[in-house]
Protein backbone atom coordinates (compact mmCIF):
# COMPACT_ATOMS: atom_id res chain seq x y z
CA UNK A 1 0.00 0.00 0.00
CA UNK A 2 1.39 3.39 -0.94
CA UNK A 3 0.81 6.31 1.34
CA UNK A 4 0.86 9.92 0.30
CA UNK A 5 3.19 11.49 2.85
CA UNK A 6 3.57 14.68 0.88
CA UNK A 7 2.01 17.83 2.20
CA UNK A 8 -0.38 18.22 -0.70
CA UNK A 9 -2.86 20.50 1.02
CA UNK A 10 -2.77 24.24 0.52
CA UNK A 11 -4.01 24.89 4.08
CA UNK A 12 -2.51 26.95 6.85
CA UNK A 13 -0.84 24.06 8.66
CA UNK A 14 1.93 21.63 7.88
CA UNK A 15 2.00 18.17 9.34
CA UNK A 16 3.82 18.21 12.65
CA UNK A 17 4.76 15.00 14.46
CA UNK A 18 3.25 14.37 17.89
CA UNK A 19 6.24 14.14 20.26
CA UNK A 20 6.95 11.26 22.69
CA UNK A 21 5.68 13.46 25.52
CA UNK A 22 2.50 13.96 27.53
CA UNK A 23 -0.58 15.55 25.96
CA UNK A 24 -4.19 16.14 26.99
CA UNK A 25 -7.56 15.82 25.28
CA UNK A 26 -8.91 19.22 24.17
CA UNK A 27 -12.57 19.64 25.16
CA UNK A 28 -14.99 22.60 24.75
CA UNK A 29 -14.93 23.28 28.49
CA UNK A 30 -11.29 24.33 28.28
CA UNK A 31 -11.37 26.37 25.05
CA UNK A 32 -11.04 29.69 26.88
CA UNK A 33 -7.88 28.68 28.76
CA UNK A 34 -6.26 27.60 25.49
CA UNK A 35 -7.37 30.77 23.68
CA UNK A 36 -6.31 33.11 26.49
CA UNK A 37 -2.89 31.64 27.20
CA UNK A 38 -0.72 28.80 26.11
CA UNK A 39 -1.05 26.12 28.81
CA UNK A 40 2.17 24.10 29.08
CA UNK A 41 1.45 20.75 27.47
CA UNK A 42 3.31 19.11 24.60
CA UNK A 43 0.36 18.28 22.32
CA UNK A 44 -3.42 18.01 22.11
CA UNK A 45 -5.89 15.40 20.95
CA UNK A 46 -9.46 15.99 19.75
CA UNK A 47 -12.31 13.68 18.83
CA UNK A 48 -12.47 13.97 15.05
CA UNK A 49 -16.27 13.66 14.98
CA UNK A 50 -16.66 16.83 17.06
CA UNK A 51 -15.21 18.87 14.18
CA UNK A 52 -17.10 17.58 11.15
CA UNK A 53 -19.52 20.53 11.14
CA UNK A 54 -19.39 22.83 8.07
CA UNK A 55 -18.43 25.96 10.04
CA UNK A 56 -18.90 27.90 13.25
CA UNK A 57 -16.95 28.76 16.40
CA UNK A 58 -15.78 25.21 17.12
CA UNK A 59 -13.71 24.99 13.95
CA UNK A 60 -12.49 28.56 14.34
CA UNK A 61 -11.35 27.77 17.88
CA UNK A 62 -9.51 24.63 16.82
CA UNK A 63 -7.86 26.64 14.05
CA UNK A 64 -6.62 29.21 16.59
CA UNK A 65 -5.39 26.62 19.10
CA UNK A 66 -3.77 24.42 16.45
CA UNK A 67 -1.29 27.28 15.71
CA UNK A 68 0.44 26.47 18.99
CA UNK A 69 0.25 22.71 19.48
CA UNK A 70 0.85 19.51 17.52
CA UNK A 71 -2.48 17.72 17.11
CA UNK A 72 -3.80 14.17 17.16
CA UNK A 73 -7.24 13.38 15.67
CA UNK A 74 -8.87 10.52 17.53
CA UNK A 75 -11.95 9.03 15.85
CA UNK A 76 -14.91 7.59 17.71
CA UNK A 77 -17.38 7.03 14.86
CA UNK A 78 -15.75 5.24 11.94
CA UNK A 79 -16.84 1.78 13.13
CA UNK A 80 -13.82 -0.14 11.80
CA UNK A 81 -15.40 -3.41 12.96
CA UNK A 82 -18.63 -3.03 10.97
CA UNK A 83 -19.47 -6.07 8.86
CA UNK A 84 -21.28 -3.78 6.42
CA UNK A 85 -18.13 -1.79 5.68
CA UNK A 86 -17.35 1.90 6.12
CA UNK A 87 -19.41 5.01 5.37
CA UNK A 88 -17.73 6.66 2.36
CA UNK A 89 -19.16 10.11 3.10
CA UNK A 90 -17.78 9.90 6.62
CA UNK A 91 -14.35 8.89 5.28
CA UNK A 92 -14.39 11.89 2.92
CA UNK A 93 -15.37 14.32 5.70
CA UNK A 94 -12.59 12.97 7.91
CA UNK A 95 -10.08 13.31 5.07
CA UNK A 96 -11.10 16.95 4.63
CA UNK A 97 -10.63 17.54 8.38
CA UNK A 98 -7.16 15.96 8.32
CA UNK A 99 -6.17 17.96 5.23
CA UNK A 100 -7.21 21.16 6.99
CA UNK A 101 -5.64 20.58 10.42
CA UNK A 102 -2.74 18.28 9.46
CA UNK A 103 -2.68 16.16 12.61
CA UNK A 104 0.51 14.29 13.40
CA UNK A 105 -1.52 11.24 14.43
CA UNK A 106 -4.87 9.82 13.33
CA UNK A 107 -6.44 7.01 15.34
CA UNK A 108 -9.58 4.88 15.71
CA UNK A 109 -10.80 1.87 17.71
CA UNK A 110 -10.92 -1.92 17.50
CA UNK A 111 -14.70 -1.82 17.87
CA UNK A 112 -17.88 -1.11 15.93
CA UNK A 113 -20.81 1.28 16.27
CA UNK A 114 -22.76 1.22 13.00
CA UNK A 115 -25.10 -1.47 11.75
CA UNK A 116 -28.04 -1.28 9.36
CA UNK A 117 -27.16 2.38 8.84
CA UNK A 118 -27.82 3.23 12.51
CA UNK A 119 -24.98 4.80 14.48
CA UNK A 120 -25.16 3.50 18.06
CA UNK A 121 -22.75 6.05 19.61
CA UNK A 122 -20.72 3.59 21.65
CA UNK A 123 -17.54 1.58 21.09
CA UNK A 124 -19.10 -1.88 20.87
CA UNK A 125 -17.13 -5.12 21.29
CA UNK A 126 -16.15 -7.47 18.49
CA UNK A 127 -15.93 -11.24 18.75
CA UNK A 128 -12.25 -12.09 18.24
CA UNK A 129 -12.60 -14.44 15.29
CA UNK A 130 -10.87 -14.86 11.91
CA UNK A 131 -14.01 -13.49 10.26
CA UNK A 132 -13.98 -10.30 12.37
CA UNK A 133 -10.21 -9.94 11.86
CA UNK A 134 -10.64 -10.11 8.06
CA UNK A 135 -13.38 -7.47 8.20
CA UNK A 136 -11.35 -5.22 10.48
CA UNK A 137 -8.21 -5.50 8.33
CA UNK A 138 -10.22 -4.75 5.16
CA UNK A 139 -11.85 -1.70 6.76
CA UNK A 140 -8.54 -0.37 8.11
CA UNK A 141 -7.11 -0.70 4.59
CA UNK A 142 -10.03 1.25 3.16
CA UNK A 143 -9.62 3.98 5.79
CA UNK A 144 -5.85 4.28 5.25
CA UNK A 145 -6.40 4.51 1.48
CA UNK A 146 -9.10 7.17 1.94
CA UNK A 147 -6.93 9.23 4.30
CA UNK A 148 -3.68 8.72 2.39
CA UNK A 149 -1.95 7.95 5.67
CA UNK A 150 -1.33 5.35 8.32
CA UNK A 151 -3.69 5.20 11.27
CA UNK A 152 -3.41 3.80 14.80
CA UNK A 153 -6.04 1.43 16.24
CA UNK A 154 -6.89 1.41 19.94
CA UNK A 155 -7.64 -1.64 22.09
CA UNK A 156 -11.15 -1.12 23.56
CA UNK A 157 -12.55 -1.60 27.04
CA UNK A 158 -15.44 -4.04 27.16
CA UNK A 159 -18.10 -5.50 29.41
CA UNK A 160 -19.08 -8.66 27.53
CA UNK A 161 -17.11 -11.21 25.52
CA UNK A 162 -18.20 -13.88 23.06
CA UNK A 163 -17.65 -17.63 23.31
CA UNK A 164 -17.08 -17.72 19.54
CA UNK A 165 -13.84 -15.73 20.08
CA UNK A 166 -10.85 -17.87 19.18
CA UNK A 167 -8.08 -15.26 19.37
CA UNK A 168 -6.89 -13.49 22.53
CA UNK A 169 -7.61 -9.76 22.34
CA UNK A 170 -3.90 -8.79 22.35
CA UNK A 171 -3.16 -11.11 19.43
CA UNK A 172 -6.22 -9.85 17.59
CA UNK A 173 -5.09 -6.21 17.87
CA UNK A 174 -1.43 -6.94 17.06
CA UNK A 175 -2.39 -9.14 14.10
CA UNK A 176 -4.78 -6.51 12.70
CA UNK A 177 -1.90 -4.00 12.81
CA UNK A 178 0.55 -6.45 11.23
CA UNK A 179 -1.77 -7.39 8.36
CA UNK A 180 -3.06 -3.89 7.60
CA UNK A 181 0.18 -2.00 8.19
CA UNK A 182 -1.49 0.32 10.71
CA UNK A 183 -0.07 1.21 14.12
CA UNK A 184 -1.39 0.64 17.62
CA UNK A 185 -2.76 3.06 20.18
CA UNK A 186 -2.26 1.23 23.45
CA UNK A 187 -4.85 2.27 26.04
CA UNK A 188 -3.49 1.00 29.36
CA UNK A 189 -6.66 2.02 31.20
CA UNK A 190 -8.68 -0.13 28.77
CA UNK A 191 -6.30 -3.02 29.33
CA UNK A 192 -6.81 -2.71 33.07
CA UNK A 193 -10.63 -2.41 32.76
CA UNK A 194 -11.01 -5.35 30.35
CA UNK A 195 -8.51 -7.53 32.25
CA UNK A 196 -10.52 -6.98 35.43
CA UNK A 197 -13.92 -7.47 33.76
CA UNK A 198 -12.90 -10.61 31.89
CA UNK A 199 -10.46 -12.10 34.38
CA UNK A 200 -7.18 -12.07 32.50
CA UNK A 201 -3.76 -10.71 33.42
CA UNK A 202 -3.10 -7.17 32.17
CA UNK A 203 0.63 -7.95 31.95
CA UNK A 204 -0.02 -10.87 29.62
CA UNK A 205 -1.75 -8.38 27.29
CA UNK A 206 1.02 -5.82 27.61
CA UNK A 207 3.85 -8.29 27.13
CA UNK A 208 2.31 -9.61 23.92
CA UNK A 209 2.26 -6.20 22.24
CA UNK A 210 5.15 -5.54 19.85
CA UNK A 211 6.82 -2.18 20.53
CA UNK A 212 7.38 -0.86 17.03
CA UNK A 213 3.75 -0.44 15.91
CA UNK A 214 2.78 1.41 19.10
CA UNK A 215 2.47 5.09 18.17
CA UNK A 216 0.61 6.39 21.22
CA UNK A 217 -0.54 5.43 24.71
CA UNK A 218 -3.79 6.52 26.42
CA UNK A 219 -4.40 6.90 30.13
CA UNK A 220 -7.72 7.81 31.78
CA UNK A 221 -9.84 7.24 34.85
CA UNK A 222 -12.48 4.54 35.24
CA UNK A 223 -15.31 3.89 37.67
CA UNK A 224 -15.37 1.00 40.12
CA UNK A 225 -19.06 0.04 40.15
CA UNK A 226 -21.50 -2.77 40.64
CA UNK A 227 -23.78 -3.96 37.89
CA UNK A 228 -26.53 -6.41 38.66
CA UNK A 229 -24.97 -6.86 42.12
CA UNK A 230 -21.55 -7.83 40.78
CA UNK A 231 -18.37 -5.71 40.52
CA UNK A 232 -17.51 -4.23 37.14
CA UNK A 233 -15.12 -1.50 36.02
CA UNK A 234 -16.66 1.10 33.72
CA UNK A 235 -14.38 3.04 31.38
CA UNK A 236 -16.05 6.42 31.91
CA UNK A 237 -13.08 8.83 31.53
CA UNK A 238 -14.49 10.71 34.48
CA UNK A 239 -11.72 10.84 37.09
CA UNK A 240 -7.98 10.89 37.68
CA UNK A 241 -5.87 7.86 36.69
CA UNK A 242 -5.98 4.97 39.18
CA UNK A 243 -2.68 3.74 40.68
CA UNK A 244 -2.94 0.34 38.99
CA UNK A 245 -3.10 2.12 35.62
CA UNK A 246 -0.07 4.30 36.45
CA UNK A 247 1.81 1.07 37.16
CA UNK A 248 0.74 -0.34 33.79
CA UNK A 249 1.89 2.87 32.11
CA UNK A 250 5.30 2.60 33.75
CA UNK A 251 5.61 -1.02 32.65
CA UNK A 252 4.53 -0.12 29.12
CA UNK A 253 6.98 2.78 28.81
CA UNK A 254 9.83 0.71 30.27
CA UNK A 255 9.14 -2.04 27.77
CA UNK A 256 8.22 -0.01 24.67
CA UNK A 257 10.40 3.06 25.12
CA UNK A 258 9.15 6.67 25.04
CA UNK A 259 5.81 7.20 23.28
CA UNK A 260 3.29 10.05 23.13
CA UNK A 261 1.06 9.65 26.21
CA UNK A 262 -2.43 11.17 26.29
CA UNK A 263 -4.53 11.98 29.35
CA UNK A 264 -8.22 11.55 28.42
CA UNK A 265 -11.16 13.00 30.34
CA UNK A 266 -14.70 13.16 28.92
CA UNK A 267 -17.23 13.03 31.76
CA UNK A 268 -17.72 15.85 34.31
CA UNK A 269 -14.64 17.71 33.16
CA UNK A 270 -12.51 19.19 35.97
CA UNK A 271 -10.57 22.48 35.81
CA UNK A 272 -7.79 22.29 33.23
CA UNK A 273 -5.13 22.25 35.99
CA UNK A 274 -6.32 18.81 37.08
CA UNK A 275 -5.86 17.47 33.55
CA UNK A 276 -2.47 19.16 33.25
CA UNK A 277 -1.51 17.65 36.63
CA UNK A 278 -2.17 14.14 35.31
CA UNK A 279 -0.25 14.93 32.11
CA UNK A 280 2.58 16.29 34.30
CA UNK A 281 2.79 13.03 36.20
CA UNK A 282 2.96 11.11 32.91
CA UNK A 283 5.68 13.49 31.68
CA UNK A 284 7.69 12.97 34.87
CA UNK A 285 7.50 9.24 34.24
CA UNK A 286 8.66 9.70 30.65
CA UNK A 287 11.54 11.90 31.87
CA UNK A 288 12.54 9.44 34.56
CA UNK A 289 12.54 6.47 32.18
CA UNK A 290 14.26 8.21 29.26
CA UNK A 291 17.84 8.27 30.65
CA UNK A 292 17.56 4.60 31.68
CA UNK A 293 16.59 3.74 28.15
CA UNK A 294 19.54 5.68 26.79
CA UNK A 295 21.95 3.78 29.06
CA UNK A 296 20.43 0.50 27.94
CA UNK A 297 20.75 1.58 24.29
CA UNK A 298 24.42 2.49 24.84
CA UNK A 299 25.15 -0.86 26.43
CA UNK A 300 23.40 -2.62 23.59
Amino acid sequence: MAFDHGNGSSGAFTREPVPAAAGVGLRHTHYNEFLAGRPAVAWLEVHSENYLCPGGPRLATLEAIRQHYPLSCHGVGLSLGSAEGLDKDHLARLRALFDRFEPGLVSEHVSWSTTGGDYLNDLLPLPYTEEALDILVRNIGQAQDAFGRRILIENPSSYVTFAQSTIPEWEFCAEAARRSGCGLLLDVNNIHVSAHNHGYDALEFLNAIPGDPVGEIHIAGHADTEWDGRPVLIDDHGSTVKEAVWELLETALSRLGPKPVLMEWDLDLPPLEVLLGEAGRAQALLDRLAPQRRVLDDVA
Binding site: D122, L124, Y159, V160, T161, F162, A163, Q164, N197, H198, W227, D228, R230, V232, I234
Partner: peptide, 11 residues
Protein backbone atom coordinates in the same frame (compact mmCIF):
# COMPACT_ATOMS: atom_id res chain seq x y z
CA UNK B 1 -22.20 -17.56 23.81
CA UNK B 2 -22.13 -13.92 24.92
CA UNK B 3 -20.33 -14.11 28.23
CA UNK B 4 -21.22 -11.85 31.14
CA UNK B 5 -24.49 -11.22 29.31
CA UNK B 6 -25.93 -9.66 32.45
CA UNK B 7 -23.71 -6.70 31.64
CA UNK B 8 -25.30 -6.19 28.23
CA UNK B 9 -27.44 -3.46 29.80
CA UNK B 10 -24.29 -1.34 30.27
CA UNK B 11 -24.20 -0.85 26.50
Amino acid sequence: GMENGHRFGIY
